[in-house]
Design a protein around this nucleic acid. Structure first.
Length: 272
DNA sequence: CATGTATAAAAGCTCT
DNA sequence: AGAGCTTTTATACATG
């Protein structure tokens, strides 16, 4: 139980102990994966890039009708005035607008996002449009990582009310916003953290920034058990709620006087 | 087991 | 003017 009180002094990770990799193991997309292998045995936290959103323009109007008819793997969303086109490698989806503006989602790295974007552009060009691949830009990135310990999220939210918002009833993850470099993190008690930011570099910065903070709220085994006991207590409470078996009618209200026996008579009855 | 809840962001149309 | 819709994606906790 007394599992060291100075748990916060976890060996701080330097940038070399954080490594960014794709969520798709190697060649699911048939492309080379550049995962920098850590040559030493320094405690390492892997940052997995799960999704990269980017935009670009074809600089030409696109007849969605034509895109839907001539393009492969396209679905026309007339109600939204756009088309969704998918390619397998990299496994991504493009939302195509008649203006020529396109958003591409699903890539697992910035380079893959650009490769996918170019493929969509090429696909459109093959259909016959006068495509000029331009204004490519990564606009959003989602990365995840898992700390080697559970996190006392509630305590963290209490200590950093300015940057942490935590409404467990609404969502299990605490939201931590970093202004510069911009990033928004979702911190879970399990130690998992999701980060959404404008680019991969920001994702990494955010994790380097959050590590010492969450390490400060590392859950100790005894405390984890206490948490479980609380959950159990809540569960029991929830199932002990005594509710009338049937709505009391006006008529019965009158009878209540003579039928006022003890309340916990059938409190053990399990209600769903 | 599938949704819904929450997060970010672009595109462009609809509705307030 | 601004907010909702659509798409992607991990995380996790409730509910049907």
């Amino acid at each position: 139980m007394t599992d060291v009180q100075l748990e916060g002094v976890t060996p701080l990770l330097d940038s070399s102990s954080l490594k960014v990799e794709n969520s798709t193991n190697n060649n699911q997309n048939g492309l080379e994966t550049e995962v920098e292998e850590a040559e030493d045995d320094t405690p390492c936290i892997d940052i997995i890039i799960n999704n990269v959103v980017c935009t670009f323009s074809t600089r030409c109007h696109l007849n969605l009708r034509t895109v839907a008819m001539e393009g492969a793997n396209v679905e026309y969303k007339r109600e939204q005035g756009m088309c969704n086109m998918r390619i397998r490698r990299p496994y991504t989806t493009a939302s195509i607008w008649s203006s020529g503006k396109i958003t591409c989602t699903g890539a697992t790295s910035e380079p893959y996002a650009k490769i996918a974007a170019r493929k969509f552009a090429r696909q459109l060009q093959r259909i016959g449009f006068d495509v000029k691949f331009s204004n490519f830009k990564v606009v959003n990135v989602l990365g995840t990582c898992s700390m080697p310990f559970k996190i006392k999220v509630a305590d963290m939210a209490r200590k950093y009310p300015r940057e942490v918002s935590y409404e467990p009833e609404l969502h299990p993850g605490a939201t931590y916003r970093i202004k510069e470099p911009k990033a928004t993190l979702k911190i879970f008690t399990t130690g998992s953290i999701t980060v959404t930011a404008p680019c991969v570099d920001n994702v990494q910065s955010a994790i380097e920034h959050i590590f010492p903070l969450v390490a400060e709220f590392k859950a100790v085994k005894s405390e984890v058990n206490a948490e479980l006991l609380m959950k159990e207590a809540r569960f029991i409470q929830k199932h002990r709620v005594i509710k009338p078996k049937r709505p009391i009618t006006k008529f019965e209200e009158d009878l209540e006087y003579e039928d006022s026996s003890d309340e916990d008579f059938d409190s053990e009855e399990d209600q769903d």
